[in-house]
Write a protein that binds this DNA or RNA. Structure first.
Lengths: 176, 176, 176, 176
DNA sequence: CATGAATGAGCTTTCATTCAT
DNA sequence: TATGAATGAAAGCTCATTCAT
């Protein structure tokens, strides 16, 4: 793939992610193309249809998250710190938004694989955090993942906003 | 208004609320009408356009919430109980959805008044809960309101799901 | 037909004629019914559909015109006076409007008969006016009829407005 | 603008003008598009909505008329000839139709300016024709304009049909 | 018999997608 | 190859007409 083609592809993904985050699922292909400084034709050269574009956004966002988690998993710090780092990473990235896009429903294999990977990594971290005594024990890893998904991956979320703070406090293991 | 007309109106609101909750803001008027067992024309006789329908849903949902809060405010129980009762009341009612509907942006006067009333009532309850020592003190009433809005008024929320539980624990005043 | 039924029927025709004249062909059946102080149902009891209502308006307007022409034909006055009287009668009655209503196109037998009668009467008057030397001779009766139709049977026409005046002057036989 | 796009735009205007002239204001956008050999979408790409299309037709028709009048105003011929030339130009162009289209009511600034210009030019010509003794003096320029509007700018008008002929005769100054 | 609520075909408009330039 | 014009299916909305009250 030529350098300018790759640049165009990235511009499109960026523009689309930005617009979806700001204005929700109703943004038109035309607008996305314009925001990327391109014509619709070019957009369609890179993505056969709307779902392909959304899929791409999902995959790239999830890939970055997975890589972040992999790095965290390998680090020699308390698991609670790893969780915090993930919260900081995700805040304001509307992964949740994707699930609210009707077009996103039938997930691709790649995406499902990424999600499984993430759940796997996060599950381990959660379990270890519970063992190290920093995370409350009455939740399964799946529940923690689901909860974090709603709490931090929403449009406008910030790592230090009240909901995130309260959530993290609620997740801490109670003093013995 | 004739008895059957009133019944149909209610059916429409019910159907619309159900569909919006389940499938988001993209549901077509045709589908709503069908779900209510009616033709589109009937829907439009009751609500001049899509926004009017959404407005109606918003108002009725908010009115019920306000009445619930008024009743709670008058009761002789700990304020923490009142908050819990509100959480139970709201869980699964997608008020938040309404604010995420693009059509909802320019809110009607009535709706704004309802929201102000609710914030007022809730603000008092929050302050009193903080004074009685049940609710953590480092949040303003507005923050608590916003947080509850995201946490409990979302599609699929339940009063006893992990997110709600964790959030309530995070909201409790720390042991002294 | 009961007295009140006849009254309702007349009210409807009146209301419809008024609204068509004022606001053109786009007026809805609902509006007509309301202007007549009735429900749509009642309107439809009197007229099976929109075209029937328009047909009725056409027939009644044309009948009045025919009767006026019959009376004029029988009078002992110059034919030019009879033409003037007809102009005064028609001014502001938008017969022409009817032909501009798309629904009016396939004319009923009754209407065609009325129109033929009117053309017959008017044709005689025109011929006689030409013979008495008051009306220019280079036009056929049909042409005069068509011309008067456009010139005086339009919304807003008045017997003394510029177009009517100029038209009548143009119709006068030139001084010998 | 691409060559084919311009061509299509012109086709649309032509088709719309033709259909409006023939069948009145009720023609659907679908039909107009079809008559132009295009899909509706294309029509809407060129004109954001129905009113924009009508506005365009109005403006282009009025612009041509204004240019015709400007040219006539500059010529060294009797003003009566200029009026005749305008009559010939307008006959059969349903400017009047435009004013009868309900959608046309709130006229754009450009349109109002064009109309004012036309009235200005025509007013001068009328006054001068009255001074040169060819046009009757008992009418104001506005009245002449209004009269010409009804008489010659109607569907089906021709420069030599009876109504036009009679009207021009009626407009001539009477022999002294 | 009067009423006005319900119906649904049809019109306007939007937007994902295709295709000529 | 990039562009943006053309397409047409689908959504919102209106209104002539029917039918339950």
């Amino acid at each position: 793939m030529r350098a300018d083609a790759r640049r165009n592809r990235e511009r499109i993904v960026e523009a689309a992610l930005g617009l979806f985050t700001e204005r929700g699922a109703g943004v038109s292909m035309e607008e996305i193309a314009q925001a990327a400084g391109l014509g619709v034709g070019t957009l369609y050269r890179h993505f056969p249809d709307r779902r392909a574009l959304i899929e791409e956004i999902a995959q790239s966002t999830l890939t970055v998250l997975r890589d972040h988690l992999r790095a965290g998993a390998a680090e020699q710090v308390p698991r609670w710190e790893v969780l915090l780092s993930m919260v900081r990473h995700c805040a304001g990235r509307p992964l949740a938004l994707l699930s609210s896009l009707p077009e996103a429903s039938p997930q691709s294999d790649t995406r499902q694989r990424l999600i499984r990977e993430i759940h796997g990594l996060l599950g381990d971290i959660v379990e270890q955090a519970q063992q190290e005594g920093s995370l409350r024990r009455d939740l399964t890893p799946e529940q923690v993942v689901g909860l974090l998904n709603v709490a931090i991956c929403r449009p406008g979320a910030r790592a230090d906003d009240p909901l995130t703070t309260v959530m993290l406090d609620g997740l801490k293991a109670p003093a013995p």
